[in-house]
Computed example of a mutant assay.
Amino acid sequence: MKKVRGLILLLILLYTGLLAGCWNQRELSQLSMVTAIGIDKASKDKEYRVSLQVINPSAVAGGQGQGGGEQISPITVYTGTGSTISTAIYKTSQKMPREPLFTHVQLIIIGESFAKRGIQDLFDVFERSPQARLTSSVLVTKGNDAKSIISTISPSEKIPVNAIVGKAKVTKSLWSENIKVTIDEVIKDLVSKENGLVISGITFIGNHKSKEGTSTKLSDILKIQGMALFKDGKLVRWLAGSDARGVMWIKNKMESTIYDLDCKEKKYGISVKNSTSKTNVTVTVKNEKPIFSIHALTEGTINEVKCDIDLSDPKEVKKLETQWGDQIKNEIIAAIDVAQRENSDIYGFGKIINRTEPEKWKKIKKRWGKTFAESQINVKVDAFIRQTGMRINPYLLQE
């Protein structure tokens, strides 16, 4: 019995040794951590230019400098070109001292000129890669190339990509003229017969310079601005200002923003900030012609007053609510008009028909772009001012 137990123990130890082997391990010192990828149109037709933003660990961790106090750049940008994304990425190895690691990529930036050519086949490589994160954000450059954007050093963040992702998040939650889109969401919209596609834009403020293998100086400021509207996978136009804000209302992604209203004889005398917002879209289909009804509901707070209005008077508050609701309604109508003129259902109205009227959807889905453009869309907005801030009447109001 003892011999049998000893033999079993010996076998367990042997198999444990085989299972515990790390045959494919790679040390961190042998890898370059990629945090952002830029994709542009190369000089040769139908070729890709891929730029990788790579972290310099010594600059991020330690800090101060190298060789006589010289400041170390927190990033290095390497580029490669090829007929596929994979080829372009692997060709960067000719310039990189370490193997690239893509598990920490937070952002994919697409150059404007490339987006106009079409992004239909761009994301296959990310969906197949075991290292890719499909939750990485996607942006489109406006007036620049992607390489210049990811080569920019931020004055507020050690790792530049954190600054870009942070700006996109902050401006979405506070101003609501841009939308967060991830790789998996882009793929779903590209393959869908029901949805169009919008992606937020990013651009420079001021001059910029960049060189391959280096980073820009600390003089560039990046701004999240506008939305790129795609049709059949190609960038066809930009949405900005109230049109972009209208998109957020329709897609039920409005978080927070400011509206300036006229007060008495003073133009833009009052600012209102919305605190809660919700949009509901319903549809009925008659004779293969859909009729959509959009109902937006919002509540807000008086943020600033520059006129002598009596906010304790319900009639005055009601006038402001009506004016505010009309502004929102006009933005929604304008955003619908833009999408209908481009025959691009960026709001997913076709998806609503498919979900609620699947049999009727089958009859109209093949010509959905044109049908969407001709659809009747009714808009209703209910706006309510619930609070006036820390005081009711402004100090300008005379007793």
Results as ranks from 00 to 15, higher is better:
Ile187Asp: 10
Val247Phe: 09
Lys147Ile: 12
Ile221Arg: 12
Asn195Ile: 09
Ser215Cys: 04
Ser210Asp: 04
Lys180Trp: 10
Ile150Trp: 07
Ser242Gly: 13
Ser200Ala: 05
Ser242Cys: 12
Thr171Gln: 06
Gly213Val: 01
Ser200Thr: 01
Val236Gln: 07
Arg133Leu: 12
Lys147Phe: 12
Ser176Leu: 08
Glu255Lys: 09
Ile187Gly: 04
Met254Phe: 11
Ile179Val: 14
Gly233Val: 06
Leu139Pro: 05
Val165Lys: 07
Gly233His: 04
Asp220Gln: 02
Asp124Thr: 14
Thr152Gly: 11
Phe126Tyr: 08
Trp175Cys: 05
Glu194Tyr: 08
Glu212Phe: 05
Val186Leu: 10
Glu255Pro: 03
His208Leu: 00
Val140Trp: 10
Lys180His: 13
Ile164Met: 15
Pro130Tyr: 10
Ser176Asn: 08
Ser137Ala: 15
Lys142His: 13
Val161Thr: 14
Ser137Ile: 12
Ile159Glu: 06
Val165Gln: 02
Pro155Ser: 13
Ser215Asp: 01
Arg245Phe: 04
Gly241Thr: 12
Asn144Pro: 09
Ala146Met: 15
Asp232Gln: 05
Thr141Cys: 13
Ala168Val: 04
Ser215Glu: 03
Pro155Val: 13
Trp175Gly: 10
Lys167Gln: 15
Met248Glu: 09
Val181Asn: 05
Arg237Tyr: 02
Ile159Asp: 14
Gln131Asp: 15
Lys251Glu: 07
Lys231Cys: 05
Ala163Trp: 12
Gly143Tyr: 13
Ser173Pro: 02
Thr135Lys: 14
Ser137Asp: 15
Pro130Gln: 13
Asp189Trp: 02
Glu177Thr: 14
Met254Cys: 08
Lys167Ser: 15
Asp184Ala: 14
Asn195Pro: 06
Thr257Val: 14
Arg128Gly: 06
Ile205Gly: 03
Arg237Trp: 03
Gly213Glu: 04
Thr216Asp: 06
Thr152Asp: 10
Ser136Lys: 00
Trp175Ile: 11
Glu212Leu: 07
Trp175Glu: 07
Glu127Arg: 13
Val165Thr: 15
Arg128Tyr: 03
Leu235Tyr: 01
Ala132Tyr: 06
Phe230Ala: 05
Thr171Arg: 06
